[in-house]
Structures are given as structure tokens and as C-alpha cells.
Amino acid sequence: MGARYQIIVVPFLKVTGMALYPFILVNKKELLNNAVVINHERIHLRQQAELLVLPFYILYLLNYLVNLAIYHQHNKAYLNIVFEREAYAKEQAMLYLKHRKWFAWASYF
């Protein structure tokens, strides 16, 4: 996937960053140079690309809803979404996407 993404600053965004294929949205200009945040979102872009985008969002939402039923807390439900588990686990590994296997997120179930 290379560097085929655009980073857009969205000041009213209620989260630090978000991957919305093929864009990365951040809520502050300072985050444009935050390698960890950008890498986290790049991992999500890869996940979205390999699932052909729309199925990613469907699986993301379903996983969140199942987690919400299990944990009864938004934060725990969010942090246990398999896509987030992979992104948080590997966000500091800047070369991760060069060596990442397809559907690596599946190992986080």
C-alpha cells in the first residue's frame, strides 16, 4: 500500500485519529508528525484495504457490539476490537507494515 494516503486535520474530530480509507484524519495539526498515531492509522488502512473497505467497517462494528455486550463499557469494548488490538500492539513498530502478513488481525481474536 505504500504511502498512498492523505492526512487531513479535522479539528472537531472527537478522537485523536481515525482511518477512513484512503484518508487518515487527525484532530490536531501537531499529530501530522506523530509517527505512532500515523502508524496506528496506517495499520487500519491496511486492514481496510485487505477487507475491501466496507466489510472492515461491518466487522469492526459487529466486533464492537459483541464486546460491548461482554464488557458493558465503551472503552473496554473498543480496546478489544481485533483491529484495534493489532493496531495498538504494533503501532510503535514502524517497519511492521513492511513485514505484516495478510489478515494478521485475525490472530488477535
Results as ranks from 00 to 15, higher is better:
Val36Ala: 10
Ile43Glu: 03
Val36Met: 05
Val36Ser: 11
Asn33Leu: 08
Leu31Val: 10
Val37Pro: 08
Val26Ile: 15
Leu31Gln: 13
Met18Pro: 00
Thr16Val: 15
Val36Pro: 00
Asn39Glu: 05
Glu41Thr: 11
Tyr21Thr: 11
Ile43Gly: 03
Lys14Met: 14
Leu20Thr: 02
Ile24Val: 12
Leu32Glu: 09
Val26Met: 03
Lys14Gln: 15
Asn39Trp: 02
Met18Ile: 12
Lys29Arg: 11
Thr16Asn: 14
His44Leu: 10
Met18His: 09
Arg46His: 05
Arg42Ile: 13
Lys14Asn: 11
Thr16Met: 15
Phe23Val: 08
Ile38Ser: 06
Ile43Val: 12
Phe23Gln: 00
Glu30Met: 05
Glu41Tyr: 00
Lys29Ala: 01
His44Val: 12
Tyr21Trp: 10
Val37Cys: 11
His44Met: 11
Thr16Asp: 15
Arg46Met: 08
Met18Ser: 09
Leu32Arg: 08
Leu20Cys: 01
Ile24Leu: 07
His44Glu: 10
Arg46Gln: 10
Ile43Asp: 03
His40Asn: 06
Val37Thr: 15
Val26Glu: 03
Pro22His: 00
Phe23His: 04
Gln47Glu: 12
Val15Lys: 04
Met18Leu: 14
Ile43His: 09
Ile43Arg: 04
Glu41Cys: 02
Leu20Glu: 11
Gln47Ala: 02
Leu45Asp: 09
His40Val: 06
Val15Ala: 14
Leu31Asp: 14
Thr16Glu: 15
His40Asp: 02
Glu30Leu: 05
Ala19Arg: 05
Leu31Phe: 12
Met18Gly: 03
Gln47Ser: 02
Tyr21Ile: 09
Phe23Glu: 04
Val36Cys: 05
Gln47Phe: 02
Tyr21Cys: 07
Phe23Asp: 03
Met18Cys: 12
Asn27Ile: 08
Ile38Gln: 02
Pro22Asp: 06
Lys29Ile: 01
Arg46Val: 13
Pro22Val: 07
Ile24Pro: 05
Gly17Lys: 13
Thr16Ala: 12
Val36Asp: 13
Asn39Ala: 08
Ile24Thr: 09
Asn39Gln: 03
Gln47His: 02
Gly17Met: 14
Glu41Ile: 11
Phe23Lys: 00
Asn27Pro: 11
Leu25Trp: 09
Val26Cys: 05
Leu45Ile: 06
Leu31His: 13
Asn33Met: 09
His44Ile: 08
Lys28Ala: 15
Arg42Pro: 01
Arg46Tyr: 06
Asn33Phe: 10
Arg42Ala: 12
Leu32Thr: 03
Lys14Tyr: 06
Asn39Val: 10
His44Asn: 01
Val26Lys: 00
Asn27Trp: 02
Val26Gly: 06
Leu25Thr: 07
Leu20Met: 03
Ile43Tyr: 03
Pro22Tyr: 01
Leu32Ala: 08
Lys29Glu: 13
Ala35Pro: 01
Val37Leu: 14
Leu25Tyr: 11
Gln47Met: 04
Val15Glu: 15
Gly17Ser: 15
